[in-house]
Amino acid sequence: MGERNPDGAVEAVPCGRRRWPWVLLVVVLALATGGAVAVELVAGALSREGTEPRRIGYRVTGTAKDVTVTYPTWHDGDLATARLRLRTLPWAAETRTRGFMSGGSLDVALGASGGEVACAVTVDDGTVRTATASGAFATASCDGF
């Protein structure tokens, strides 16, 4: 608690240095180090994914006789968009790319004559996205692959 001085007043006796600033510093450094390790792990995974070949398969089926198909393609690492006007279905295509990709979209727009369509996208025979549409000027979008 304290000691009494010759006047009878109580004086505080220092207990030593405060420890909480050091504890706080250690906690902050541990959190920063953990965050840096997490960022490095994610960056490493994306880097490895950036060199892996990917095979993207597109397929459109249905009864429609007038459709416009729009889909992404990759040539030497560059993204391009292909657009086709089809009078008969089914239709299928495949493209290859290297690396991480996200947000692609296969869009199938029906013309004035309507009909029904279904689209499907596969990535390396996995990740399947599907959609359907029917009626004049309707659109089926298989996106997010």
Rank of each mutant, 00 (worst) to 15 (best):
D107I: 04
F137K: 14
A131Q: 10
P90C: 00
Y71G: 05
E94M: 06
T81I: 07
A38E: 09
A92H: 05
P72E: 01
F145I: 11
L89V: 04
V123M: 05
E116L: 02
P90V: 10
M1G: 12
D66V: 08
D125S: 07
A45K: 12
S141P: 03
R85L: 00
R85D: 04
V117K: 11
V69H: 00
R54H: 09
Y58V: 09
T70V: 14
A12D: 07
D107Y: 04
V123Q: 07
A133N: 03
F100L: 15
P90I: 08
P6K: 10
E94L: 12
Y71Q: 04
A82G: 11
G34I: 05
G126E: 08
A82T: 15
T61G: 09
P53D: 08
F145Q: 10
A82E: 13
L29A: 15
A9Y: 11
R48F: 08
V128D: 00
R54A: 05
V60S: 00
R83F: 00
A80D: 04
V10M: 10
A64N: 02
D124Y: 02
G104P: 12
V60N: 04
T33Y: 01
R87Y: 02
V121L: 13
T81P: 02
D125Q: 14
K65N: 10
A133M: 02
G2R: 08
D107V: 11
K65A: 13
G115M: 07
A43Q: 11
P72L: 00
R85W: 00
T70E: 08
G144K: 03
T63R: 04
W91P: 03
Y58P: 08
D66L: 01
V123T: 11
M1N: 11
